[in-house]
Design a protein around this nucleic acid. Sequence first.
DNA 1: CGAGTGTTTGATTTCTGTCAATGCTGGTGG
DNA 2: CCACCAGCATTGACAGAAATCAAACACTCG
Lengths: 235, 235
Amino acid sequence: MRGAASSCKSCSLRTVCAVNPDELSCSRQMDDLILGYRHVKKGVALYRAGDAFSNLYAVRTGSYKKVTLLADGREQVTGFYVSGELLGADGIATDHYASDVVALEDSSVCVMPFDLLELLSREVKAVQHNVFRMLSADLVRESNALILLGTMTADERVAAFLLDLSSRWQARAYSPNAFGLRMTREETGSFLGLKLETVSRTLSRFQKQGLIKVRGKEVEILDFPGLNQVARRTV
Amino acid sequence: MRGAASSCKSCSLRTVCAVNPDELSCSRQMDDLILGYRHVKKGVALYRAGDAFSNLYAVRTGSYKKVTLLADGREQVTGFYVSGELLGADGIATDHYASDVVALEDSSVCVMPFDLLELLSREVKAVQHNVFRMLSADLVRESNALILLGTMTADERVAAFLLDLSSRWQARAYSPNAFGLRMTREETGSFLGLKLETVSRTLSRFQKQGLIKVRGKEVEILDFPGLNQVARRTV
DNA sequence: CGAGTGTTTGATTTCTGTCAATGCTGGTGG
DNA sequence: CCACCAGCATTGACAGAAATCAAACACTCG
């Protein structure tokens, strides 16, 4: 467990926090912003729906699922988050978080007290701009998820899901060809608006078609153009 | 067409712009912010995906649909917007709008140049806080739409849709019992992830069940508890 | 090594989409 | 003012995709 004294200069999220990672004056101020790290064990909630809102979080390590609950107990995974992504923005509107965020593996976050972030946003234009951009990017991400759920078939959803994961790993300098799914088939299905059996069947069929190789949670993409075609994207 | 000189004091959106509508100093500053009004004829786009981002818009009168396009030409309605609601936030992330927004009837918006909004946000804490809240509220709204598309049956979607419209009309001091749908069955279906025939059938069945009365675009809710039950909400 | 969770696969059902025909309504122009 | 037209809505019959129910299998973690 790292202390609050850790510097943002060593944080892989500097590019998230600062518009320009070379902009030292900014990242120095980010040091004031990051209260510290918080480690979250697999299966444990970073926060729960209804908790009083006070912090935004930036994923440092590991991965998380965001789960939204219905009144009748049904729940849906509304997002997966990996390093560099922002958590907690759904709490700003009502001063209470609107969802549960649970670690899919042992993970950690940077803790950013929102009042400090507001303060810093007022002082440093670049920080303000970046906070707005992060919130807006969240909106765009959710819009894309809406399209996925609203207009796509099961095949298209699974293909798009794999390609999305691939590009996110690539953006983090990991292999876009082979990666481990952190989530179960059920969680994947919940996110994609499908049942776990459908996800499993679809992955199996993709394998038969030579598009991918699956073995449990390990996935390898063998045919990107083919998968893109299934997802009906223009490469 | 009103000019830029119009005052926010006479704008129905003051409660959106200012945290506290009585806070005159704030609303005076909002006058500087609102560049002016823009009228949008039925069927005309307020902005299109890819347009350079420069303004946020607050709906003054009328109603709008937000449409997101897929690469292959398919499109989905990702939201309906009425007075007091915020448009354009999806453009912040990339400096280009990510969707089309089209007026469903002759409508108007307040134009808020984003750079001015950023400036004012840095100067006035209350404005900053409110902008964050509006963006966050957008996120929560989209999360709810995700749940609708991800876990609900056709009946539940249509019931939830009617109840959502009802509460939005009520919040604007219109009758929550009877209102006119501004959107076609096809647009409704696109938003709900259903085909227009399914929407039509479901509405007809709800009417047979005595839950609502439909006549074309006119809807009257006869049995709120019943409709809530169909939507599987806790009143 | 065993228990329990997670995954795969199969058989069947159900819901929603698709295709098709008809009807309504509001706007336009003669 | 009325008739016509085009877009929108309703309804029916049928097909198809994904859910459900069910069983067996594979990991992984004590």
